[in-house]
């Protein structure tokens, strides 16, 4: 610590230094806002481009210099897209796969996560490391044998390859649910056991109802995964009557000279439901994603 005379000497200069520090902070904050604002704009513009494209006529879409806003919004792009593409068929297929996906994901992963968190047994944590390791396994490594296996079973050209495996656990969901289950006080289970409840009853009647937030997260992620999945349907669904929206649209897009405004309209229609789910259930998203990084 300095002696008092030098402190006295510093005193007169202090106010201006404080002021310049304040100014620096203000400038810093302004710079932060400018950078964030511009980045946010860059993130939003492609969305607006998609929406405006879905309402343009073909000539407006290809115009150079580009047309920012369609002169007359072509709402018929949407109705034409729905009637000309097998949109409803693809939608029904997608929802079938997504629906079974949600059921399978919730049933299997809650059971599995319960066994990895609320029951104590030897070798549990070792087995859990194996679960985490499989999270890092690229799909491409198992894709070919799975295709061959499903083909031998006669499952290629049915929904089964996309539905059945879901009922046998997903490492990310197991991880997410396990973290949540671990946070529920042990005493709850113990007092239920004293009252004679079986482990399954505790799981079904106590832990599941308490875990609705994290189960919602799992349901959302599962739905969004099925909704946008591309490589799964591409590899396993060989029959175009079974195509999902993603795969169907890609097939339409890959023909020569596709009708782009219609594709943009389908694009808006396919993105909108997901955005709506997000805005209604936002906190479950953010929690689920934030979680994966912290504990990972």
């Amino acid at each position: 610590m300095r002696s008092s005379p030098s402190t006295v000497q510093v005193m007169p200069a202090a106010p201006s230094r404080v002021r310049s520090k304040k100014l620096m902070e203000r400038l810093e904050l302004a710079a932060v806002y400018i950078i964030l604002g511009l980045t946010a704009l860059a993130f939003i513009i492609p969305f607006l481009w998609l929406v405006s494209g879905s309402l343009k006529s073909s000539s407006e879409l290809f115009a150079n210099p580009p047309v920012w806003l369609p002169s007359k919004p072509q709402w018929t792009n949407f109705t034409t897209a729905f009637s000309e593409f097998p949109f409803l068929l693809y939608l029904r297929n997608t929802l079938t796969i997504a629906g079974f996906g949600i059921i399978g994901a919730v049933l299997s992963n809650t059971l599995i996560a319960y066994g990895f968190s609320r029951v104590e047994w030897k070798g549990r944590d070792g087995a859990f490391v194996l679960v985490l390791a499989t999270m890092m396994l690229p799909f491409q490594v198992t894709m070919i044998p799975l295709f061959i296996m499903f083909q031998k079973l006669g499952w290629i050209g049915t929904f089964l390859p996309l539905i059945v495996p879901v009922f046998f656990g997903n490492p990310f969901f197991i991880f997410l649910l396990r973290q949540f289950f671990q946070g529920i006080p042990k005493e709850l289970s113990q007092s239920a056991k004293v009252d004679g409840a079986s482990e399954f009853r505790i799981y079904w009647q106590m832990i599941l109802p308490l875990s609705l937030p994290v189960i919602t997260t799992v349901m959302i992620f599962s739905f969004i995964g099925s909704w946008g999945d591309f490589i799964g349907p591409l590899v396993f669904l060989s029959d175009n009557k079974l195509y999902t929206l993603s795969l169907g649209i890609q097939q339409i897009m890959s023909v020569n000279d596709p009708r782009w405004p219609l594709l943009m309209a389908v694009g808006v229609s396919m993105t909108l439901p997901v955005l709506m789910i997000f805005f209604v259930l936002q906190k479950y998203f953010i929690q689920g994603i934030a979680f994966s990084g912290i504990k990972g």
């Binding site: 998609l50 946008g228 993105t271």
Partner: peptide, 10 residues
């Protein structure tokens, strides 16, 4: 949240 196929078209 944008499905990969739509992301690609966009």
């Amino acid at each position: 949240l944008v499905p990969l196929v739509i992301l690609s078209i966009l």
